[in-house]
C-alpha cells in the first residue's frame, strides 16, 4: 500500500471530499474488513464494525495529520479498536478504548518516535515468538481478541496483579527486542 497515496486521500477526506472518501474506502476496506473479521469472527458484526470505522474515519480525518502515525496504522487501529469495543460491548461496565488520532495530542517534540517504531514493526512477530510463550500469547490475546486483564488472569490461572507484572515484563522485552 502506497503510504503517500493513502495520506493524500486522508488529507482530502479531512476536507470532506466525498470522492476521496470513496476512493480511500475502495483502497483499504478489504484490509480493514479482514481485521474486523479477525477480531469479531462474525460477518454481520464485522460489517457493522466496518461501517462504524469508516464513519469515524470520515469524522476524524482532520485529526490524523497531527498524531504522527503512519496512515495504515491509524486506519487499522481505528478498525481494531472499534471491533474490540463491539466485542466487549456485551460485558458489563465496559469502557470503550479510545481511538488514535482522536484523543492523542500532537506528538510534538518526538514525532520520530512512532516512525522508529514503524521501522521496527517488521520484527514484531519474531520478537513476540522470542518471548516467554505465555507472555507472547497474552499480548496477542489482548491485541487481537480484546482480552482484558481479568480474561488473561483467568486463562493463565494467575492473580490479576501477577498478570499485570507478566505483561509489563513482556512488553519491556518486546520493545527491547524490536529496537535491536
Amino acid at each position: 500500500m502506497d503510504r503517500e497515496e493513502i495520506e493524500r486521500l486522508i488529507a482530502r477526506v479531512a476536507l470532506k471530499d466525498r470522492a476521496a472518501f470513496e476512493e480511500l474506502y475502495d483502497r483499504v476496506s478489504a484490509k480493514l474488513f479482514g481485521v474486523c473479521l479477525r477480531v469479531l469472527n462474525k460477518r454481520a458484526a464485522a460489517e457493522d464494525a466496518m461501517q462504524d470505522t469508516f464513519v469515524k474515519i470520515w469524522n476524524n480525518a482532520d485529526r490524523y495529520q497531527a498524531n504522527g502515525l503512519s496512515p495504515m496504522t491509524w486506519l487499522i487501529t481505528i478498525a481494531r479498536n472499534t471491533s474490540i469495543d463491539r466485542l466487549r460491548a456485551r460485558k458489563k461496565g465496559h469502557q470503550d478504548i479510545d481511538t488514535p488520532g482522536m484523543e492523542l495530542v500532537a506528538t510534538g517534540p518526538s514525532p520520530e518516535q512512532s516512525a522508529i517504531a514503524a521501522s521496527e514493526a517488521s520484527k514484531l512477530t519474531g520478537c513476540l515468538d522470542a518471548l516467554d510463550a505465555d507472555r507472547g500469547a497474552a499480548i496477542r490475546g489482548a491485541y487481537l481478541d480484546g482480552e482484558t486483564y481479568a480474561d488473561l488472569a483467568e486463562r493463565f490461572k494467575v492473580p490479576l496483579n501477577t498478570m499485570r507484572t507478566w505483561l509489563r515484563r513482556g512488553l519491556i522485552s518486546l520493545r527491547e527486542c524490536m529496537s535491536q
Binding site: T73, I76, T77, A106, Q113, A115, A117, I139, R140, M178
Partner: peptide, 14 residues
Amino acid sequence: AGAVAAWQERLVAM
C-alpha cells in the same frame, strides 16, 4: 501521546 503512537505502530504489525 508519542509513546502511545509508538506502541500503536509496534503492535499494529500483529
